[in-house]
């Protein structure tokens, strides 16, 4: 292949990616502007809080408890190779709070909430409900996007906090029941080892991941193509984008909070 043609193709791909980043950034800016400016739709916000927060609790709880339990088993068996079985409480705590809690909750929210937001809004677009909103003097960004992004910003850090606690509880249960750890000592080690910075970073990651998850669902829903295929593509793209951005943001935030 002609090297210039290859270079041109690469350039087009880079420009297209940059344009997509720009469109998403403008969309995000618009969403936050609509969160701050009246009118507000409290009923829509309440529904979004329910959907993003309350109804995600079972899946977040199940994910966290199994992950905490598995983590305890892994650390115990891995630590046994160099006589470090005793560090299970500390590593479970730090692993859940700093990393696994926020990332797994973020990914579960991407799977559950991003997909549902994208499919709902895309279907509304395909069936002209978004055009209907406009003709009824209601801004779709304000009515559909702002409440969902705000609800994710509020509830996902709470879900991460709950996930962290349940994950640690899962590790505790496995350690005490199966691995012979003393219950009181396990809890004491966990509390003594965790720092405020660990908890703050966990909740901050939750807030960022929540916003990413909701924004991607809304963005791809609002820019959906026509028909069932358009809705399907919007849903798939939203989850892929949310998951990748959450993992990338996790790397950046970990660097920000813990680089020495």
């Amino acid at each position: 292949m002609n090297p210039l043609a290859l270079l041109a193709r690469l350039g087009r791909a880079v420009l297209s990616a940059l344009a997509a980043v720009g469109r998403i950034a403008i969309f995000a800016f618009g969403a936050f502007a609509h969160i701050l400016r009246p009118p507000y739709y409290p009923r829509e916000l309440f529904n979004a809080l329910l959907n993003v927060g309350w109804l995600s609790l079972p899946v977040v709880g199940m994910t966290a408890i199994f992950t905490g339990g598995a983590l305890a088993l892994q650390i115990y068996s891995g630590g046994a190779r160099f006589n470090a079985e005793a560090v299970v409480p500390q590593i479970v705590a730090i692993g859940m709070v700093r990393e696994l809690g926020p990332v797994l909750v973020g990914l579960m929210i991407a799977a559950r909430v991003t997909s549902s937001i994208a499919a709902e809004i895309a279907t509304m677009k395909v069936t002209e409900q978004i055009d209907a909103l406009v003709t009824l003097s209601t801004h779709p960004m304000k009515y559909l996007v702002a409440p969902r992004v705000l609800a994710a910003l509020i509830t996902v850090p709470l879900l991460v906090g709950i996930g962290d606690i349940i994950g640690i509880a899962g590790g505790y249960a496995v350690a005490v029941q199966n691995l012979g750890f003393n219950a009181a000592a396990y809890l004491q080690n966990t509390v003594d080892f965790l720092e405020l910075r660990d908890v703050v970073s966990s909740l901050a990651k939750g807030a960022v991941f929540g916003v990413i998850a909701a924004l991607m669902g809304c963005y791809y829903g609002m820019h959906s193509g026509r028909g069932a295929q358009g809705v399907g593509r919007a849903t798939k793209s939203s989850v892929e984008a949310a998951a990748v951005l959450i993992l990338a943001a996790n790397f950046v935030l970990t660097g920000v909070f813990f680089s020495i």
Partner: peptide, 14 residues
Amino acid sequence: LARFGMLFQGGALF
């Protein structure tokens, strides 16, 4: 927009 009403092809009910 307050001066307009519109009936959409598929109804476009919420």
